[in-house]
Design a protein around this nucleic acid. Structure first.
Length: 216
DNA sequence: CATCGTCAAGACGCGACCCT
DNA sequence: AGGGTCGCGTCTTGACGATG
């Protein structure tokens, strides 16, 4: 059935663009973004091609939702290059909750595992997964119950999504991270919620989000 | 109202057949 | 072989409904 992985030009271009776009912006493009970028005369062509890419397992589309594209791994390479990552705990996207998993006491509990493309591993090294609680990152298309892939690192760029540990509250939270002078702004991606301001020394970055996996 | 995803109808290109 | 036509994949135009 499915042939060699020689995608038609247009499909490959669309796939590449989505990949780039998500890297640059952290969110998937709209159909019309793709249309412009790939010089396609109509959104239906984009839709048509996305449908095929969906069918062939290059991406998932979330119906009834804007920007509902999820890229699946293994574009170009052979499929089945996946590896399992433990979901080591949950992270609050709402108000902070005082649980943050110790990555290493993962042995005794029976964790859920989630399969990701091994490209992620190649790119970011070891990552771990956290289940998201709350909806404060909904505008970044991270919903309650979704799983984020986190690269353990203390370094995040301005505006990147980070797992932040607020020392004096002993709470961890998932927010967009901005340094503003000697303060840190933890910004939810949800227009209904306001940012949290903290002293920079009071905030410790535990890792940054490098991927999102949606769950049903 | 602007943005976004989806759909219906039809056109075009191309290869696979089929015929005289 | 040369010409007709059918099917299929792809694309265009244009419009609709949902959402914020």
């Amino acid at each position: 059935m499915s042939q060699k992985d020689k995608l038609p030009n247009r499909r490959q271009k669309i796939l590449d663009f989505i990949q780039d776009f998500m890297q640059d912006n952290g969110i998937p493009p709209t159909v019309r973004d793709i249309q412009k970028a790939c010089e396609i005369s109509s959104t239906s062509v984009v839709d048509y091609n996305l449908r095929l890419l969906d069918r062939d397992g290059f991406l998932n589309r979330r119906p009834e939702m804007a920007r509902g594209i999820e890229l699946l791994g293994a574009s170009g390479t052979h499929g089945a290059n996946t590896l399992k990552v433990p979901i080591v705990g949950s992270i609050a996207a709402g108000s902070p909750i005082p649980v943050f998993p110790n990555e290493m006491d993962s042995q005794n509990a029976d964790f859920d595992f989630i399969e990701i493309s091994s490209e992620v591993n190649r790119k970011y090294g070891t990552v771990f997964a956290l289940e998201v609680k709350g909806t404060s990152m909904i505008d970044a298309l991270i919903d309650d119950g979704d799983v984020v892939l986190v690269q353990p690192t203390p370094n995040v760029e301005q505006g990147e999504m980070a797992v932040a540990w607020i020392a004096d509250r002993e709470e961890a939270t998932l927010k967009k991270f901005y340094v503003e002078g000697d303060k840190v702004r933890l910004q939810p991606a949800n227009s209904a919620m306001g940012p949290i301001y903290c002293q920079a020394k009071n905030v410790e970055v535990r890792g940054k989000v490098v991927g999102v996996i949606r769950k049903y």
